[in-house]
């Protein structure tokens, strides 16, 4: 159902894909830094959820893939995330690269007309995707799931993986 592939630039300008993070779990959320409601609400919830996981959260790489690459440069994402949601690493790319990632995760995003010059909304899917250490899709958590429910779901999956050697040194 979910291919979970991408080839993008992280907010430090490095080319990354699922293989970059192999050996750790990935928590992937799509959005855009100009988002006024959905992204702040969900990134805050996911950040708090990760805080609540304690040390286990160290085994998870939180990734934030933009659906608005025209405005979300690596610099913009690094600054915005650093100020508000420092657990997350921002990923961006060309329009084609972003669209390919969207298709792989089956994410909806549709740019709306500008309300004022340069200002527009991009309604988008608000689902957090969990990928395992091999980059395979394992579960997803829609916006309707509470912080506690997401934490419980992820903790359960991490526990089932307890025998794994953990991230490479």
């Amino acid at each position: 159902m979910i291919e979970a592939s991408f080839s993008l630039l992280d907010h430090d300008g490095r080319r990354v894909g699922p293989e970059t993070y192999r050996g750790r779990w990935m928590l992937v959320f799509f959005g855009f830094t100009h988002c006024k409601v959905v992204c702040p609400r969900n990134l805050a919830k996911l950040s708090a959820m990760l805080d609540g996981l304690g040390p286990a959260a160290d085994d998870i790489v939180p990734l934030y893939i933009t659906v608005d690459p025209e405005r979300d440069t690596p610099e913009r994402m690094r600054t915005w995330l650093g100020e508000h949601y420092p657990r997350f690493t921002g990923l961006t790319g060309t329009r084609e690269e972003i669209d390919a990632a969207r298709r792989a995760f089956r994410v909806f995003a549709q740019r709306r007309p500008e309300t004022t010059p340069g200002d527009y909304d991009v309604p988008h899917t608000a689902i957090a995707y969990l990928l395992d250490r091999d980059g395979r899709f394992r579960d997803h958590f829609p916006e309707t799931r509470s912080e506690a429910e997401i934490r419980e779901g992820i903790a359960g999956l991490l526990a089932s993986d307890a025998g794994h050697a953990g991230p490479p040194a």
């Binding site: 159902m1 979910i2 089956r106 994410v107 909806f108 549709q110 309604p123 988008h124 899917t125 689902i127």
Partner: peptide, 13 residues
């Protein structure tokens, strides 16, 4: 059902 669900997601519900 899963197939329809993900199509629904892709269409923004």
């Amino acid at each position: 059902s899963q197939h329809l669900y993900w199509m629904m997601v892709e269409k923004g519900y």
